[in-house]
Design a protein around this nucleic acid. Structure first.
Length: 594
RNA sequence: GGUCGCGUAGCUCAAUUGGUUAGAGCACCGCCCUGUCACGGCGGGGGUUGCGAGUUCGAGCCUCGUCGCGACCGCCA
């Protein structure tokens, strides 16, 4: 025990009454009554009320917010009627006999207990922001989760192995951060988007079970749940099948939820196919808590006199609909907004029906016959006050349009108080049987849906040449409350299969495939074991556990939406000497000079 | 790159149809106060309304531009 503290500020209870204690911390608030001063003393763990008598401790009058002080005193019970039930330490207080100001503080630029402060300011003074109880709690919970992950995976026989941060550019995926090499002028490293290739090489190396809390870097535009650097729980195993991954990760999630928030996750988790997810929710990461499933009416409208629907069906498309329960009150403005959203998602327009005032109000209902109306009423369980929305297109675009509207409408209904997402519900499930390959209309070639190392499902292998988009991959995503928590796959371990995909399916020129992935294919040729793995987004996972809106709230020093650190002022210019050493010239300087 | 929203005191916000000297709470400074916990009372300081143009007799408010921040779309194998 050192001279600063005998206890922390959330520790003392009635049972400590009479003890002489020393506490150190920050002045959270001060209530100066002239002849008596109360201070809420805060440290990482919590608050304790200090009572100071300014007659013996005159410095008590000079205390201000965020001063760092040390207090000696006696734990006393609070007088009758002054107990504060909001504080865990609210039954006691410290009668100070000694006050030392360890450090003064500038007036804080914003009140630390204020909820809705400009995020700029919070980020600029992040060290103050992190003093707030909520942020301190988030950091603690994140630590608890990391510790649980390490303990669990250690028990399961995993080795924590670090992989390089200075890696090589592999422009197949996300845009990368580049790092110039002074020793090799004109050449660049790239920061890894993920340790994907290294973890596969570790399997070839016989590591068998690898994991890492891996920092990953992507130079893409940011979102509330996207940072330029973020952390993945990255792992890979040899001699395993998909079922082994499911079992392992389910156990891990169960343990994390138990140790961090004492919530029981029931196992095994449900599995749905990509096909089912799209069909029922129009997305591969559905938030099933919202209800509002999509239904198919292709058969109903096959021969409809409503030509818009009938012609889509004739062209091999589908007619899908969803019931936005209780949203018949949607204003014209809201309908217009939904139509815009639908168009942005690729629809040509938006057909809708309002069940209102005992009748159906809709621009299209006049084309429907009784059988069609009956099918809709039954299939969508239409009741007074409902809003029905349609999408007619090829299967996937039709699903996606309604999937997007479903989320927009859920947001609107929540604002109106007509839809409440239940709290404390954690809807985990696996999404499986993803298509291995999709056709990218922009690049005019087939692309890997996940990444190019994903193994096909063996029975689909024969389709690879003729109908590549029908091949399913041994890929799996774990979804929680509409958030993609992570994903992974069984990898290709035969070099000839990997080569075939690169060169014949993805049409990556031989030389490029060689320089980009040659070492990996070569490694696979030296007895690579069957292997697979998964990566979980740690920031998102912790954010959900904390109930945080943004992953910025669970990262100690995050960047803003422009990828800047407002506290340190990075990124920043560098000395021209540094650039010369790297043999780098920037266009910006040339532009400024001209 | 695009769409939308926001920008007024240190912080959170207000300011009627475009109308006099831009207000309030908290914070800050001074004085008073022995049971507060959002302590209270009295007094005080604090503003280039993000910036720049324009319209107008007159702009925090309208228009254009610009900068900053945020959300979303694109992007994120």
């Amino acid at each position: 025990m050192n001279s600063y503290r005998t206890h922390h500020c959330a520790e003392l209870r009635k049972s400590h009454i009479g003890q002489k204690v020393t506490l150190s911390g920050w002045v959270s608030s001060r209530r100066d009554h002239g002849g008596l001063v109360f201070v809420d003393l805060r440290d990482r763990e919590g608050l304790t009320q200090i009572v100071l008598d300014p007659h013996s401790l005159p410095a008590a009058h000079d205390l201000r917010s965020e001063f760092v002080i040390r207090i000696e005193g006696e734990v006393v019970g609070r007088p009758e009627g002054t107990v504060n039930l909001k504080l865990s330490t609210g039954e006691i207080e410290i009668k100070a006999t000694q006050l030392d100001v360890l450090n003064r503080s500038e007036t804080p630029p914003y009140p630390l207990d204020e909820e809705h402060v400009n995020e700029d300011l919070r980020l600029q003074y992040r060290y103050l922001d992190l003093r707030r109880a909520e942020m301190a709690h988030n950091l603690k919970l994140r630590h608890r989760v990391c510790k649980t992950i390490r303990d669990y995976l250690d028990e399961q026989g995993f080795l924590e192995i670090e992989t390089p941060i200075l890696f090589k550019s592999t422009p197949e995926g996300a845009r990368e951060y580049l790092v110039p090499s002074r020793a090799n002028p004109g050449l660049f490293y790239a920061l890894p988007q993920s340790p994907q290739q290294f973890k596969q090489l570790l399997m070839v190396a016989g590591a068998e079970k690898y994991f890492q809390l891996a920092r990953c870097f992507r130079d893409e535009d940011l979102r509330a749940d996207r940072q330029p650097e973020f952390t993945q729980v990255d792992l890979e195993m040899s001699f395993i099948e998909r079922e082994d991954i499911y079992r392992l990760i389910e156990g891990l999630l169960q343990r994390i939820w138990k140790t961090s928030i004492d919530h029981e996750v029931k196992l095994p988790l449900e599995r749905i196919t990509f096909q089912q997810a799209m069909n029922s929710y129009g997305t591969d990461k559905p938030d099933r808590r919202l209800g509002m499933e999509l239904y198919d009416f292709t058969e109903t409208f096959k021969a409809s006199s409503f030509k818009v629907f009938a012609s889509v069906v004739a062209a091999g498309g589908v007619v899908k609909a969803m019931n936005a329960k209780g949203f018949a009150c949607a204003t014209q403005g809201q309908i217009d907004h939904l139509t815009e959203q639908a168009k942005a998602a690729g629809a040509k327009g938006l057909a809708w029906i309002k069940a209102e005032g005992g009748t159906w109000k809709s621009p299209i209902v006049k084309f429907f016959n009784d059988a069609e109306k009956e099918a809709l009423t039954r299939g969508l369980k239409i009741e007074e006050g409902d809003l029905i929305l349609f999408a007619a297109d090829q299967w996937q675009p039709a699903c996606e349009v309604l999937g997007k509207l479903r989320l927009v409408i859920a947001g609107m209904l929540q604002k109106m108080g007509k839809l409440t997402v239940p709290k404390g519900v954690y809807d985990f499930f696996w999404v499986v049987d993803f298509p291995l390959i999709h056709f990218d209309s922009e690049a005019q070639r087939y692309m890997a849906s996940h990444h190019p190392f994903t193994a096909p499902i063996p029975e689909d292998l024969s389709l690879l040449e003729k109908e590549p988009t029908k091949v399913r991959g041994q890929h799996y995503d774990i979804v929680l409350n509409g958030v993609e928590l992570g994903g992974g796959s069984i990898r290709i371990h035969q070099p000839e299969v990997q080569k075939k995909l690169f060169e014949e399916v993805f049409k990556i020129p031989k030389e490029i495939a060689e320089t980009r992935f040659g070492y990996l294919i070569r490694a696979l040729g030296f007895g690579a074991p069957p292997h697979g793995g998964i990566a979980l987004g740690l920031d998102r996972l912790v954010a959900i556990l904390c109930g945080a809106e943004s992953i910025r709230d669970v990262i100690a020093f995050p960047k803003n939406a422009r990828a800047q650190d407002l506290m340190t002022g990075s990124p920043a210019e560098v000395e021209s000497k540094q650039l010369r050493e790297l043999r780098i010239q920037t266009e910006i300087k040339a532009l400024a000079a001209s």
